[in-house]
Design a protein around this nucleic acid. Sequence first.
DNA 1: GGAATAGTGTCTTTAAGACATTATCTA
DNA 2: TAGATAATGTCTTAAAGACACTATTCC
Lengths: 255, 255
Amino acid sequence: MSPSENNGYSAKRYRTPDGAPADIVIFTIVSSPKNTIQKSLPLRELQVMLIQRKAWPFEGMWALPGGFSKETETLRETAMRELEEETGVENVHCQYLNVYSTPGRDPRGWIISHAFFSMVREELLQHRRAATDAADVRLFSVDEALESLELAFDHRDIIRDALDKLKEEVLRTTLAKQFLPDEFTLGELYQVIRTIIPSFQEDNFIRKLKTTRRQGILEPALDAEGAPVYSTQFSQRPAQLFRFTGNEPEWSIYG
Amino acid sequence: MSPSENNGYSAKRYRTPDGAPADIVIFTIVSSPKNTIQKSLPLRELQVMLIQRKAWPFEGMWALPGGFSKETETLRETAMRELEEETGVENVHCQYLNVYSTPGRDPRGWIISHAFFSMVREELLQHRRAATDAADVRLFSVDEALESLELAFDHRDIIRDALDKLKEEVLRTTLAKQFLPDEFTLGELYQVIRTIIPSFQEDNFIRKLKTTRRQGILEPALDAEGAPVYSTQFSQRPAQLFRFTGNEPEWSIYG
DNA sequence: GGAATAGTGTCTTTAAGACATTATCTA
DNA sequence: TAGATAATGTCTTAAAGACACTATTCC
């Protein structure tokens, strides 16, 4: 049924948008071994994946991966499709961020963009490739992307908004699990949080997460006999492994 | 500069959306005097403003107020414009909720809707009027709207999402201030929260909000001499008035 | 006096926070 | 044995939670 067949209604009475793309801020945490004599936790850096545009507008500039939505899919499906095309990875985290509609934001016309952000573990990003509309694709540290790079469109705003949301949610929700394996040590969790929020410091972090209120959010990893599991991957002394239960923390007022 | 003049680029190579509307979930809390012998806190009910459609599609059904965006404005401006048109009120709360893009959600074509929600104090809603595209406009209790009413489009989903977000944020942020006057008693604040979340119960609510961690969020209202202000509007015994400082609570991990 | 809401006293339990100390394993 | 991270001991202070009690004012 075409619109013009219905009771004289026409959606074309006004100008309509020239496109509805989804842009995706793909975050990853890149680990590099610390230069120490003994086993240690790696150095970690929060990075963002950008593509280099190979066509007008903003040709040659770095931009967020993304693409136009089709009328047969939701914007989430658009984002997931583009995410899989750019990274070669399926079933990863992807979360809606905001809509960007400032007039003139896109020189191609009236184009309202929907931004998503995604947290992908670095080992899943090995197969990234330049899509057909990109000259190159690479990871930049978030600081570099925000401070030194001239970005296409309003993509700097989008990355900043995504980073703000990431910082807020990594403290308030269990979002950090996206950057961790199923079973992890509390030292690793602490490091992930500090990678995203360098100023974060809690002296008794490990003890704190093991006490009452957090039970229900984290649980010890258990082996087949029901005994706690320990790892020496990052330390001499074995560290207890934990997993997320799937519960999200709830908050009471102004607490 | 028209799109077709630029390096052969044309945004019209693909089908483009038929419109980008903003829909607004307008919440209010309606107070009615309790049938008691003495002064008391009012009964309160959370309500939502709906319009009755007078044209295809969904003619005669109740729907969220809203309208199409123009290329010269942001979607937030669209929402604020519609909000002022429907309610006659300016400068009210308005917050982005989500985007709704399920194919087929609008029989008029490919129409991606952007939902906002707004919290308006009931005394500001006296001048509401039916816009030109509405046969009628009225307030419904949120329960009635969600359970008994057949709503146009996917507006039931939108209202449910808005209610969920409202419930979450009224506990986590100072959103409740949108339903309160500048200076209010903690009993009023408690009532507002319980109106939105009936299951909420805190025995020591008033004391709790006056102790340490909350300082910085709420502060006592002071008169010209710097003395605390009390009100007997809802009670025999004078109740201390408070105001929001403007600070938002911060949250530490899993606490 | 009783109705209705505001607010305090008191006690117990739990968590937060600081900071020193010990534990485990390996290069 | 020194290095690196994991974890506990101990002490102090603050907050949570339960629940009984008092306060204020007006009908």
